[in-house]
Nucleic acid binder design. Structure first.
Length: 326
DNA sequence: GCATGTCAAGTTGTG
DNA sequence: CACAACTTGACATGC
């Protein structure tokens, strides 16, 4: 049974998450800084409860929490923890309530740190900053019962293998709180499923399979092959697999392939996923509306037959545009 | 109010 | 070597 997930924000439902910039915080004395972020964190913790309530009401089985849930809390200039905030008790209570609700209604929570959270960088400062952010998200994940923190492999640098060796090394340095939740995702430029499988197996961390990234950055594996290779990495840690799905904003070959479309093209949902027990995060700009549309298409059972492998390997990128028109 | 430029953070690729 | 692109919505600022 597929569980569809919503990513971070809403298109129409009036649930909003707030943030604040370092520039603004810099101008304030410490006490005022903490007042401001406290108010925002309190608001965000209420919004998270609203988001979970909405998800439950609408049969959405997973929700991705946006990274600045506690905005700028790991930035060296303004760093703070929950314990520093005037509203810490109320915020903690809301987080606990969110965890209860999530448990009761079986809603999965995850984090997806931004692109600059990188454990494979040759620059030690980048790694230190990344670890700090992972520790923050790990702590929050612990309180919320979020089971997965997904990051990418990073840059190519000298070589992918040297970079992944650094990744493995630095993975050993983060707390078990973060380690237990960390997952690697194939990206759209550098690291493929094929690249990441060995390090995932070695470190016993699961691999989040992003279908659109796989198409942008193919590795010779079919969708079915990648899917079946990735599933055991989740079985080993006793968790449901995580996949990401999205459709390109522009038809293949007619524009940049990476930007996401408002909705998921039904032919982009692999036939071979349909009967799996898995979580599929819907990365689409129409957000909850895109999830609803995909729910409908999947429950109809008559969505167009999926060309699982039409855009992978077997057909060259140049030919893909015409293939899609049918 | 509304429009526009900005935002902590990294890396790659181009000129 | 410098800088734009990547990607993106909300914030912040200025009119």
């Amino acid at each position: 049974m597929i569980r569809l997930g919503l990513c971070c924000i809403f298109r129409e439902e009036p649930i909003r998450f707030r943030t604040i910039t370092v520039q603004t915080l810099r101008k304030l004395p410490r006490v005022a800084q903490l007042d401001r972020v406290s108010e925002i964190c309190l608001d965000n913790s209420k919004s998270l409860l609203a988001a979970l309530t909405f998800a439950h009401k609408n049969s959405i089985g997973a929700f991705r929490i946006l990274s600045p849930f506690m905005p700028r809390c790991t930035h060296p200039e303004v760093a703070y923890t929950l314990a520093d905030l005037p509203d810490r008790l109320a915020i903690t209570a809301h987080l606990a309530q969110a965890n209860d609700f999530r448990t009761t209604h079986d809603i999965r929570l995850s984090f997806h740190p931004d692109q600059f959270i990188i454990l494979s960088s040759p620059n030690p400062e980048v790694v230190v900053n990344s670890c700090r952010e992972l520790e923050y998200q790990g702590l929050l994940a612990e309180q919320l019962g979020a089971d997965t923190i997904t990051i990418h492999g990073g840059g190519k640098y000298d070589s992918k293998s040297a970079a992944l060796a650094r990744f493995a090394d630095n993975f050993g340095k983060i707390s078990s709180l973060a380690q237990q939740r960390l997952a690697l995702e194939n990206d759209d430029r550098i690291y493929t499923v094929r690249d990441l499988l060995p390090v995932c197996r070695e470190l016993n961390i699961p691999l989040v399979y992003d279908l659109h990234h796989h198409r942008c950055n193919p590795d010779g594996l079919s969708v079915a092959e990648a899917t079946s290779l990735v599933i055991p990495t989740w079985e080993k840690v006793g968790r449901e697999p995580y996949f990401h799905v999205s459709s390109p904003r522009h038809p293949w070959g007619s524009g940049p392939p990476r930007p996401h479309a408002d909705y998921i093209d039904p032919t982009d949902f692999p036939e071979c996923w349909k009967d799996l027990r898995a979580t599929v995060d819907v990365e689409a700009k129409a957000k909850e509306l895109a999830v609803f549309r995909l729910q409908d298409m999947l429950s109809d059972g008559n969505y167009p037959a999926c060309a699982d492998d039409c855009r992978l390997g077997r057909i060259k990128r140049e030919d893909q545009g015409s293939h899609l028109k049918n």
